[in-house]
Amino acid sequence: MLEIKNLLAGIDNKPILKGINLSVNAGEVHAIMGPNGSGKSTLASVLAGREGFDVTGGEVRYKGNDLLDLAPEERAREGVFMAFQYPVEIPGVNSAYFLRSAVNAIRKHRGEEELDAMNFLKAVKAKMKELGLGEEFLKRPVNAGFSGGEKKRNEILQMAMLNPWLAVLDETDSGLDIDALRIVADGVNRLRGPKNAQVVITHYQRLLDYIVPDFVHVLHDGRIIRSGDKSLALELEEKGYDWLVKEAA
């Protein structure tokens, strides 16, 4: 599904990703861990197409095509979803309206009929119930005045409604209470299937108790310095990153 080869990227001529190799197949969940500033969010941003990040080498293929060639909205419509580490507030724009526009942009791209307000509301309410979210969410402006945890849950709701093939979650578990953590994990687990894949960026092995990853990768200074299975996360929890960094040096 996703094939990243020797990816080099930076910002303002400062190299941040220094040769990432990663291959994610349909049906898999990959966890990415690593110290602050190692480049995890940068990787997510490059995959989503955020402006200002310059790709200076390597390639990224998504479902066989060059992902980097697509505009951000085209990537989204092709089924790439990113849950933001810091979801953005859009005052004045009603959450329900925003989400319906997003759902319809993607449905239209897929040649599916657009949802009218009634059908959309039905679908979104059902999803909210599944995820244990209160309906008051829909009436408020997008993320405006939401608490940190509410913003993260809103990301999960959007993901659930947009049904992406590939979801990249950037620290969606940070700052969540235990119930919210379950909602997030639940959202991801519901998406798991033979045709979908998830990349979960996290600092905490705790999340991986709920979302059991097939692979765990450690990112350090713009490179993946170790890959393993779930046990690697446990080992990191116990020993920190230093030993790995020393081994890699």
Partner: peptide
């Protein structure tokens, strides 16, 4: 970018924000 990432064109995103305003 947030709107783009949800599949919305830049112009539509601007219109949406302006109309909300």
């Amino acid at each position: 970018f947030y709107c783009n990432q949800r599949g919305l064109e830049t112009q539509d995103a601007v219109n949406m924000i302006v109309n909300g305003f």
